[in-house]
Design a protein around this nucleic acid. Structure first.
Lengths: 123, 123
DNA sequence: ACTATTAGTAACTCATTGGTTACCAATACG
DNA sequence: CGTATTGGTAACCAATGAGTTACTAATAGT
C-alpha cells in the first residue's frame, strides 16, 4: 500500500499524530484508540510498508516511531500540483513550501536538508 | 469523501496532475485515461466533494479546474506531523557545555570559537 | 519452571470502492 | 426540426479494506 492509501484512513492518521509525539508500543496505541490490538498491528504494518513508521525491537516489546521520510511522496505530489511558472506563487503554495522546510529542519542539520530522504534502508 | 481518501486513488491523482496544467472537460479527461467517461465523472465528483476541483458550466460543456484550496487539510496534517520544537536540542547542550568550560578557563578565546553555536539561524 | 505480557497471523464478515454498460437530460448544430 | 455531443445517474459486479475473535510465538518476571 502506498503512502497515499496509507494516509487515507483516519485511524492511521491518528496513529501517526500520536507517534509524532514520541515512540510507542502496540498495546499503548491500542489503549489510546477505540480499536483492537490486532487492528492496530495491521495499521502499523501498512504504515511500515509505506515508510511512514519504523520499529525497533526491545526484548518482547516493539517500539514504533514516526518515520518522516515516508512523507516524501506527499510533498512531491504537492509540488507537482504547484502552478507551472507563476511569477507570484499563490498562498496555498506558500504554505506548502513552509511545510517542506519545517519537516526537513527537525533532522537538526539545516544545511543538508535533503539527506533524510535516503537515510534508512528499505523495509 | 475527505481529501485524503480522494488522493488515495492513483487515477484521481493523475486527474489532478492533468488539471494542474489547465482546465478540461470530462470527455477530454476520459480520452487521456484508460477508463470510461462515467468513471471519470465519478472521480470528478469525489474530487469536487473534497474541494480539490471546481466546475464551470459553459453551455452543454462543463469545464473542470484544479482547486488548490482543497489541499489545505493535507498541508495542515503535514504540519501536525512536524516535530514539536525540542525544548533543549542536543547540539545546544554540547555547545553549552563547551562554553561553560571555556568561559571558566579563558574568557577572551570564547568570542571567536563559539560562533558556530548560532550559525544555524543564518540559513 | 511457570505464568503473564507483548505482538503477529489466520480466518472470517461486512461495507465500501472502482469499474462497467445502459439510460436520460440538455445543449449545439446541420 | 432532428441528430449528434456532452455529461450525469442507475444498476450491477468484482475486489479490497477494516474490523473482529481465536490462536501461536517469544520474552520477562516470580
Amino acid at each position: 500500500m502506498d503512502s497515499f492509501a496509507a494516509l487515507a484512513d483516519p485511524v492511521r492518521r491518528a496513529l501517526l499524530r500520536r507517534l509524532a509525539e514520541g515512540p510507542a508500543r502496540v498495546v499503548d496505541l491500542a489503549a489510546e484508540h477505540p480499536i483492537s490490538r490486532p487492528a492496530v498491528s495491521k495499521h502499523l504494518r501498512v504504515l511500515g510498508e509505506a515508510g511512514l513508521v519504523s520499529a525497533a525491537d526491545q526484548g518482547r516489546e516493539r517500539h514504533y516511531r514516526l518515520d518522516r521520510t515516508g512523507l516524501e511522496p506527499l510533498t512531491a505530489f504537492l509540488g507537482e500540483l504547484a502552478a507551472p511558472a507563476p511569477p507570484v506563487p499563490e498562498r496555498a503554495l506558500d504554505g506548502l513550501e513552509l511545510e517542506v522546510r519545517r519537516t526537513g529542519r527537525d533532522r537538526r542539520a539545516t544545511a543538508r536538508s535533503t539527506d533524510h530522504i535516503n537515510d534508512e534502508e528499505t523495509a
